[in-house]
Design a protein around this nucleic acid. Structure first.
Lengths: 199, 199, 199, 199
DNA sequence: GATTAATCGAGACGGTACGTCATGTCTTAGC
DNA sequence: GCTAAGACATGACGTACCGTCTCGATTAATC
């Protein structure tokens, strides 16, 4: 059954995948080289050997390109292991995150978060495509802990995650202090009494 | 003793204070109207009735202007009261911060934090002029609590503050979820076991 | 005898006449609306509901489309009557031309002449398909006049026509002054001694 | 007396004359190289080593630049001599014009006339700055002829000039036939009976 | 009547130029 | 010597067309 095209959206089936990939890679490189300010549509087009119109046809703005590039080139795989110990699970997860920060993907993520402050659509996209999943995984760890009797039954996982991960972001973005495995250990140690089940 | 001017630094004694104030106010207004992207030197000059050179003479970049404007026009006065209860002191401080966020000054602060991600000088300035003082006050609250026996003696105030305030920033900037007094209460309730002295 | 197609020339027998007409009409409308600058291939394709390739398949450039449109839609029929009086014949012909100018077809003709200044192929096409025939008819009028003894025998019809019609074009394109029947009368009156046979 | 600036027109007194000249020269060169289609603002800016904004600040469109360039670089000096013979005066003037056509300035002039077909402002500027003066000079030649008794007293100089010069333009732009001194001679010979005083 | 090959609409593509805006430097008058 | 004003070279913005191209889907001529 043939359906008359109504929307003015471009026809994805005709999309040139070579161009798409070249654009994502070029954006990725530029972002890494000079951060968001260095990422210009003009520059991406030049470096990718692509017309500007092709970029504008498929992405509404720079942030959207970076989002795609991140999904495509750098899906930062954060493991959420089940070691049997909630504390150890948290430690490993959070250490993975600290190891992500100094990479290309980490810098891109932070740049996107910064940009999302004045771009509601980007904020929503980030939340949906990157944040929600991670928070869900972390919640799962805590729920397992509750089931095992390690974690207090009346915990609010959202708040706990805000505190744990918030500390990392705050240190990185506001204090500009190092965020490393040692810090993660100290952080979990300090907060553990607030998470642990009563003895 | 008269010293021959050598550097090209402008002579502050001759500075026109009317222009200075007009610039800060114009920057402030533009920032509030459209966020950082709307804040252009050109726009500030136009709106302030000032030459662009005058702006460049006295400030190295937009962020510096906003820093000054914040100090001048909106030094957000956060009280650090001493109610006798550490928990109440923290609650009041953090509530004050949540009340700051939706104001002009709060938006400006968040914009500056975002901008500081790719501007090391701004990051340092922010830290020195706005962050350090607050952290110090919060540390003081915790130290008083230790002295009173309310707060555990082996607390690391830095980490505690990262967790408490980090949760606020994370919620605001990453989760884009509301940050209000109720949230502050719940947050402190959850984390209190990690801060409190053993009974 | 079937001959294997070698050249890439399109097969006219398969041509879709609906498209051809829609294209000519669309071009004609656009030309009338905004002159040559408003006549874009993209616009013609859109308005005619036709693929751009179809246009490029059959016409080398915009001018060629307009040429066809003119032949098809508006072949301006200029009568070259034989009233018995050369002067009257000329007057009628030239008046017909002045009446053509303010029409769609007239505007198109002038646009084509302008365009032909930097397009030798178009210039040749115009000359062959529109100009030569008219000049020939005008020459014929003059030759009849010679035969009748009204017009001097040693006239060079080419030069006479240059002067008569040139005056019209010059007035229209350079002086931008009105070209109307009254002007035609005055022009013929003035030049007649140069055309007439000696008494 | 200081007058408050009202209009948004740029301040000509601050104009950079080096840029102005570089722009005119670049435009001139490009026009000569490839005609009007080759004359792009982008190209002029590149070749002149000038920002596009500088061009847009001072000229509304390409044609205006060419007008200025013509006045500045190539004011084609057409002599209007007084030899004592009207016929000879006309011959010399018109020959000068034919000699202008194949030069840069001539090509520019024809390009401008073409462009003026869809640009009323340009048409007016051309008329005022280039055409009127020439027509006036030619009229003067005819009036002298009348005074001397060579030219018929009831001549309409406007019409005579339309016919004489119109023939040149028509031949050049419509017939695309050569316009040379021999043609000028033949043209004047043919038309002379229409100009001459009765014997 | 079925097969086949070219035309058709649609529109993506790499480009070039458009005209606008902001950048940071500079020059010129005026106070 | 600072100031308001704003011209300047630079370069990115987002848009419009260019002419080429690829894709299914008609559709007309041939078998």
């Amino acid at each position: 059954v043939k359906v008359t095209r109504i929307s003015r959206a471009p026809d994805a089936s005709r999309r040139n995948d070579r161009s798409r990939q070249a654009i994502l890679r070029a954006a990725w490189d530029l972002l890494d080289r000079g951060g968001f300010p260095a990422l210009t549509i003009e520059g991406v087009a030049r470096r990718a050997g692509v017309g500007k119109a092709t970029i504008y046809r498929w992405w509404p703005n720079k942030a959207a390109i970076v989002m795609d590039a991140m999904s495509e080139l750098a899906l930062p795989h954060i493991p959420f292991p089940d070691t049997g110990s909630t504390r150890e699970d948290l430690r490993r997860q959070m250490t993975s995150v600290t190891e992500l920060f100094p990479t290309k993907a980490g810098r891109a993520l932070l740049a996107l978060i910064g940009e999302s402050q004045h771009d509601a659509l980007l904020a929503a996209a980030l939340r949906d495509r990157l944040i929600v999943e991670r928070r869900e995984s972390a919640s799962e760890v805590l729920r397992r802990g509750v089931a095992r009797g390690e974690v207090r039954a009346d915990i609010d996982p959202g708040i706990a995650i805000d505190a744990l991960y918030g500390a990392l972001y705050y240190r990185l973005q506001v204090s500009h202090a190092p965020v490393d495995p040692a810090y993660v250990d100290a952080l979990i140690d300090q907060l553990w009494p607030a998470l642990a089940a009563a003895p």
